[in-house]
Protein backbone atom coordinates (compact mmCIF):
# COMPACT_ATOMS: atom_id res chain seq x y z
CA UNK A 1 0.00 0.00 0.00
CA UNK A 2 1.39 3.46 -0.85
CA UNK A 3 0.87 6.70 1.01
CA UNK A 4 -1.72 7.63 -1.59
CA UNK A 5 -3.89 4.57 -1.11
CA UNK A 6 -7.02 5.12 0.91
CA UNK A 7 -7.20 3.23 4.19
CA UNK A 8 -10.04 0.70 3.83
CA UNK A 9 -12.87 0.86 6.36
CA UNK A 10 -13.62 -2.84 6.11
CA UNK A 11 -11.20 -5.77 6.35
CA UNK A 12 -10.96 -8.02 3.29
CA UNK A 13 -11.78 -11.71 3.70
CA UNK A 14 -8.15 -12.72 3.14
CA UNK A 15 -7.07 -10.27 5.86
CA UNK A 16 -9.44 -12.01 8.27
CA UNK A 17 -8.00 -15.39 7.30
CA UNK A 18 -4.48 -14.05 7.73
CA UNK A 19 -5.26 -12.58 11.16
CA UNK A 20 -6.66 -15.95 12.27
CA UNK A 21 -3.53 -17.76 11.09
CA UNK A 22 -1.22 -15.31 12.84
CA UNK A 23 -3.09 -15.53 16.12
CA UNK A 24 -3.35 -19.33 16.15
CA UNK A 25 0.37 -19.62 15.36
CA UNK A 26 1.32 -17.21 18.13
CA UNK A 27 -1.04 -18.67 20.72
CA UNK A 28 -0.95 -22.47 20.72
CA UNK A 29 -3.70 -24.24 22.65
CA UNK A 30 -3.09 -23.62 26.34
CA UNK A 31 -4.42 -25.30 29.43
CA UNK A 32 -4.61 -24.45 33.10
CA UNK A 33 -1.75 -25.73 35.24
CA UNK A 34 -1.98 -29.09 37.02
CA UNK A 35 -4.41 -29.20 39.90
CA UNK A 36 -6.89 -26.75 38.37
CA UNK A 37 -9.86 -28.99 39.21
CA UNK A 38 -8.60 -29.34 42.82
CA UNK A 39 -8.24 -25.58 43.17
CA UNK A 40 -11.67 -24.99 41.68
CA UNK A 41 -13.32 -27.54 43.97
CA UNK A 42 -11.60 -26.04 47.00
CA UNK A 43 -12.78 -22.63 45.94
CA UNK A 44 -16.32 -23.87 45.37
CA UNK A 45 -16.35 -25.43 48.83
CA UNK A 46 -14.99 -22.22 50.32
CA UNK A 47 -17.62 -20.18 48.47
CA UNK A 48 -20.31 -22.28 50.11
CA UNK A 49 -19.14 -21.09 53.53
CA UNK A 50 -18.92 -17.47 52.39
CA UNK A 51 -15.15 -16.98 52.43
CA UNK A 52 -14.34 -13.29 52.08
CA UNK A 53 -13.45 -12.80 48.35
CA UNK A 54 -10.21 -10.92 49.06
CA UNK A 55 -8.86 -13.72 51.28
CA UNK A 56 -9.95 -16.30 48.77
CA UNK A 57 -8.28 -14.50 45.89
CA UNK A 58 -4.94 -14.46 47.71
CA UNK A 59 -5.31 -18.13 48.61
CA UNK A 60 -6.14 -19.16 45.05
CA UNK A 61 -3.32 -17.11 43.56
CA UNK A 62 -0.87 -18.64 46.00
CA UNK A 63 -2.11 -22.09 44.87
CA UNK A 64 -2.12 -22.89 48.56
CA UNK A 65 -4.51 -25.42 50.02
CA UNK A 66 -3.20 -24.52 53.49
CA UNK A 67 -4.15 -20.93 52.85
CA UNK A 68 -7.51 -22.01 51.47
CA UNK A 69 -8.03 -24.01 54.63
CA UNK A 70 -7.07 -20.94 56.62
CA UNK A 71 -9.50 -18.87 54.59
CA UNK A 72 -12.23 -21.36 55.42
CA UNK A 73 -11.24 -21.21 59.08
CA UNK A 74 -11.32 -17.41 59.08
CA UNK A 75 -14.73 -17.43 57.47
CA UNK A 76 -16.03 -19.87 60.05
CA UNK A 77 -14.67 -17.69 62.83
CA UNK A 78 -16.03 -14.57 61.12
CA UNK A 79 -19.43 -16.16 60.78
CA UNK A 80 -19.43 -16.78 64.51
CA UNK A 81 -19.98 -20.50 64.21
CA UNK A 82 -16.49 -21.63 65.17
CA UNK A 83 -17.15 -22.04 68.88
CA UNK A 84 -20.39 -23.85 68.19
CA UNK A 85 -18.61 -26.23 65.87
CA UNK A 86 -15.85 -26.90 68.42
CA UNK A 87 -18.40 -27.40 71.18
CA UNK A 88 -20.28 -29.93 69.12
CA UNK A 89 -17.01 -31.71 68.47
CA UNK A 90 -17.57 -32.01 64.73
CA UNK A 91 -15.22 -29.33 63.52
CA UNK A 92 -13.29 -31.90 61.52
CA UNK A 93 -16.22 -32.82 59.34
CA UNK A 94 -17.21 -29.17 58.95
CA UNK A 95 -13.70 -28.26 57.86
CA UNK A 96 -13.57 -31.24 55.57
CA UNK A 97 -16.80 -30.10 53.92
CA UNK A 98 -15.58 -26.52 53.84
CA UNK A 99 -12.36 -27.14 52.02
CA UNK A 100 -13.22 -30.40 50.29
CA UNK A 101 -9.89 -31.92 51.19
CA UNK A 102 -8.41 -33.96 54.02
CA UNK A 103 -9.88 -33.78 57.51
CA UNK A 104 -8.37 -30.93 59.51
CA UNK A 105 -7.93 -30.99 63.26
CA UNK A 106 -8.97 -28.16 65.59
CA UNK A 107 -5.27 -27.49 66.24
CA UNK A 108 -4.62 -27.17 62.52
CA UNK A 109 -7.53 -24.78 62.11
CA UNK A 110 -6.06 -22.53 64.79
CA UNK A 111 -2.56 -22.82 63.38
CA UNK A 112 -3.65 -22.13 59.77
CA UNK A 113 -5.73 -19.19 60.92
CA UNK A 114 -2.88 -17.60 62.81
CA UNK A 115 -0.54 -18.28 59.85
CA UNK A 116 -2.93 -16.58 57.44
CA UNK A 117 -3.43 -13.60 59.70
CA UNK A 118 0.32 -12.88 59.93
Amino acid sequence: MTDHDEVPDRAADDDIVRAGGLLRNAMPVASFSDGFADRTMARLAAARVAIPPAVLRVAAMQRSFRLLAAAAAIAIVALGVHNTVIARGDNTSIMEAAIGLQPVSAESVLSYTSEALQ
Binding site: M27, A30, S31, F32, S33, A60
Partner: peptide
Protein backbone atom coordinates in the same frame (compact mmCIF):
# COMPACT_ATOMS: atom_id res chain seq x y z
CA UNK B 1 -14.73 -28.55 30.13
CA UNK B 2 -11.65 -26.81 31.54
CA UNK B 3 -9.88 -26.85 28.15
CA UNK B 4 -12.68 -24.89 26.46
CA UNK B 5 -12.76 -22.39 29.32
CA UNK B 6 -8.94 -22.08 29.22
CA UNK B 7 -8.95 -21.22 25.51
CA UNK B 8 -11.35 -18.35 26.08
CA UNK B 9 -9.73 -17.06 29.26
CA UNK B 10 -6.16 -17.26 27.94
CA UNK B 11 -7.19 -15.54 24.70
CA UNK B 12 -8.70 -12.68 26.69
CA UNK B 13 -6.29 -12.39 29.64
CA UNK B 14 -3.11 -14.23 28.64
CA UNK B 15 -1.67 -16.86 30.99
CA UNK B 16 -0.87 -16.41 34.68
CA UNK B 17 -2.58 -16.08 38.03
CA UNK B 18 -5.33 -13.77 36.78
CA UNK B 19 -6.28 -16.34 34.16
CA UNK B 20 -6.31 -19.20 36.68
CA UNK B 21 -8.40 -17.07 39.00
CA UNK B 22 -10.88 -16.24 36.21
CA UNK B 23 -11.07 -19.92 35.23
CA UNK B 24 -12.00 -20.91 38.78
CA UNK B 25 -14.50 -18.04 38.95
CA UNK B 26 -16.16 -19.31 35.78
CA UNK B 27 -16.90 -22.72 37.25
CA UNK B 28 -17.84 -21.43 40.70
Amino acid sequence: HQAAVARTIFGMLGSGDDADDAGQDTFV
